[in-house]
């Protein structure tokens, strides 16, 4: 899932500036699960904004809404008729949802209330860890199901490096060495031979280095009945 965390209230207040009527828009998917921008967080932040703005002598009117997914048109389209009532929308969705709102409703300013942080997993309650960098060329079959791109600080394909000490990464004693994890699991699975093959340099053009990415599935694209395209 996409993991994010709310921006500090001071920063949010600065972003909102002179806005008096604000629609605070949450998202019911990833940011709900990571407690950054779901219905509950919308309620808490809305109360904070009302109280803070009142204390500062310029009371804001803050309405609340949470849609199932801000990253899909069909879920945000029902908001269209409401948006003219507001100076600004403050979105607690991830960066995708925030851009979705801006793209779908170009005459409405939608501001970010969340810092989108990584693709990760709730390791335990209240703790999220990065697991994937969406590099576009998955090598988990080779690396015992543990990703060195997301979890090795150096993104090594042939690790570990000399900074791995007692199973811990040199950058931080709380960061396990991804290559130690990979080696340990491969040994348990009996797949160490895969690790002995030298991995060639990664084709980063499939990742962000190749520019913004796009997937087109011809079998799913709807055909325009008028034009036949």
């Amino acid at each position: 899932m996409i993991v994010g965390e709310q921006k500090p209230l001071d920063e949010v207040m600065e972003l909102l500036g002179d806005a008096r009527k604000v629609l605070l828009a949450g998202c019911g998917t990833c940011v709900t699960v990571c407690f950054a921008g779901g219905e509950k967080e919308v309620g808490i932040l809305a109360s904070q904004l009302r109280m803070r703005s009142k204390l500062e002598g310029h009371a804001m009117e803050v309405d609340e809404v949470t849609v199932q997914r801000q990253c899909e048109w069909e879920f945000i389209d029902p908001l269209a008729s409401r948006l003219k009532d507001y100076d600004v929308v403050l979105s607690l969705a991830c960066g995708i949802g925030i851009q979705g709102m801006n793209e779908r409703f170009p005459s409405t300013i939608t501001l970010p209330g969340v810092n989108t942080t990584f693709l990760g997993i709730p390791e335990k309650q209240g703790v999220w860890e990065e697991r994937c960098q969406a590099c576009g060329d998955c090598i988990l079959a080779v690396t015992a199901g543990i990703c060195p791109i997301a979890r090795c600080s150096k993104q090594l394909l042939n690790g570990p490096c000399g900074g791995s000490q007692n199973g811990v990464c040199e950058i931080d004693p709380d960061t396990p060495c991804a290559w130690q994890l990979i080696w340990d699991r491969a040994r348990e699975l009996g797949t160490v031979d895969k690790l002995l093959e030298i991995q060639k340099p990664k084709d980063w053009s499939k990742s962000r280095d190749g520019g913004p990415r796009k997937i087109v599935r011809e079998d799913l694209v709807l055909i325009d009945e008028q034009t036949g395209d």
Binding site: P8, L9, D10, I44, Q48, M51, R52, L55, E56
Partner: peptide, 8 residues
């Protein structure tokens, strides 16, 4: 903490 952020 929430109260401190608000200014209360």
């Amino acid at each position: 903490q929430l109260l401190d952020q608000i200014g209360l």
